[in-house]
């Protein structure tokens, strides 16, 4: 299916958020996730099933003021 990953279209074979993170190379990184604007805690990624067109946000620590 095709997701909108951090604003860009991305086709994945994954069915869940956890699988998508692994497939896209984010496994083991310190990131937080949201699906369609809602926060998804790390412990719920494996049970979060994705649908065509879902908006996935993957964020990480960054400089800030």
């Amino acid at each position: 299916m095709t997701l909108l990953l951090n604003g860009a279209p991305q086709t994945v074979a994954a069915k869940t958020l956890a699988e998508a993170l692994a497939e896209l190379g984010f496994a083991g990184r310190i990131v937080a996730t949201a699906v369609n604007g809602d926060f998804v805690p790390a412990r719920k990624r494996a049970e979060t099933h994705l649908s065509e067109g879902d908006r996935i946000e993957i964020v990480a620590p960054m400089q800030g003021g």
Binding site: V31, A60, P61, G65
Partner: peptide
């Protein structure tokens, strides 16, 4: 103070953290 931003495939955020 720190922020959260979209993580790049290169993993810039990991080094900062």
């Amino acid at each position: 103070t720190v922020s959260l931003r979209r993580e790049s495939s290169g993993g810039a955020g990991q080094a900062f953290w």
